[in-house]
Nucleic acid binder design. Structure first.
Lengths: 231, 231
DNA sequence: TGCATATTCAAGCAAACGATTGAATACTAG
DNA sequence: CTAGTATTCAATCGTTTGCTTGAATATGCA
């Protein structure tokens, strides 16, 4: 009786730990982060995360075993995607926890930005403020992620110019209006690069810390609340 | 430049993975679960989780290194506690993810209850329903966790009779009123045991799946929403 | 001061893990 | 059918992890 009780506990916690194990390797978290931006193939993921294809495939296998992601054969390629929005929310919770509890995260970020000679926090725009200014037509929202990710989902009204093409396509941007660039989230530096480039060319530009998915998660929560209140 | 970019990413994800690693061992999740119920000493945790004291201490060291928990010397004992409510919420998110995505969790639970000849889901009461019936004075809410945990926090109006003492203290309970027993949460079986015992002695008893902390988390969210709505 | 108790530390061992390599499989296009 | 491409599989190697054991440290109490 007591032993079966112990067995039950052990089995349950072992199941819980499958999720934990899945996010215990840095590279797997990076893959999960990428997949939260949208579906991708193995090769694309491997390249983005600086992994060998075989190694990426192996990590993806682990993530899939924990049911955090799923895969589907699409012709010659295999498309991997997050199993559920819930998974992204879990990743955000983890990221937020690391952000608020691990001093080292702030330190690493600060060191990197200092090394680049950029003020990290100074130019960051909060989601609430942006929302107001977008509505007023004051700003142009720029999505600097790869077009693939833009297509998978973006902030309504945003314009897509991947960071790699930005320099060549600068003339597409209006001079007068302020530009707010965003990318994958607070620890993605593409928007920082974009702002740096834009400012060097005389544009007024700012970075939004949140990415699309953070934005959507936020919007979703707000909507949910309104629903509950109104009903 | 590109290398420093990679380095930054690697360092950030490595930080994130500290949280992941902390919850990658079943026993550490169990310890975290216990600590979400309230502060505890090493020995107490070790005993509850069926660990040697040295082993528990080691696991606690890992959890503390990830800043999920903190410890304070209290005379001869060391008190461990969760670093922040945010940590409990993270644990809940993990548990919920496992619950909804890993079929094995349901299977393990079902197997255990079937083996005990108890209908698991049949007698579960939801938090919303309970709230209503408590307000009407229809039910008596019974906290069957160790008194230590009851003292650390409980559902308002609940009565404490630890499962170990329940049999001897049955006469304290009123015959007529329905009893709703709760313990640490959906995967804690103390309330199941209590309900079984109570029914065998002719009481009308049901189990509430949620524990105190789930309850509080729920309450907190509800309050938060009301605030936001009213302001 | 010295004994008892709670906790941590240190060493050792088997198992699990992450990365690498090279081969195998599955699909497409010519 | 064959060549080429995307992905997975299998074997290997060095590291890390979780657990055990026994000793060390720290605090409280007689």
């Amino acid at each position: 009786m007591a032993t079966s009780h112990r067995q039950f506990k052990d089995r349950i916690y072992e199941q819980f730990s499958r999720i934990g194990k899945a996010v215990s390797a840095p590279k797997r978290i990076e893959l999960l982060d990428l997949l939260c931006q949208g579906p991708r193939t193995v090769e694309s993921l491997a390249q983005q995360a600086s992994l060998s294809v075989a190694n990426a495939s192996q990590h993806l296998r682990v993530l899939r075993a924990a049911r955090l992601i799923e895969s589907e054969k699409q012709g010659l390629y295999v498309e991997y995607r997050v199993a559920d929005v819930e998974v992204c929310r879990f990743f955000f919770a983890l990221r937020k926890l690391a952000d608020s509890h691990l001093a080292e995260v702030a330190q690493v970020t600060q060191t990197y930005f200092a090394q680049r000679g950029v003020m990290a926090a100074a130019s960051a725009v909060s989601g609430d403020e942006l929302l107001r200014r977008v509505r007023n037509g004051e700003v142009l929202v720029l999505d600097v992620r790869p077009e693939e990710e833009f297509r998978a989902g973006h902030i309504p009204g945003a314009r897509s110019i991947p960071i790699a093409e930005l320099k060549a396509r600068l003339r597409e941007l209006p001079r007068g209006r302020e530009i707010v660039a965003y990318c994958r989230g607070p620890y993605c530096v593409m928007a920082v690069d974009a702002v740096e480039l834009l400012r060097k060319h005389g544009y007024r530009a700012q970075r939004m810390e949140q990415g699309v998915v953070d934005w959507r998660a936020r919007g979703w929560r707000v909507e949910k609340e309104r629903e509950r209140v109104l009903s």
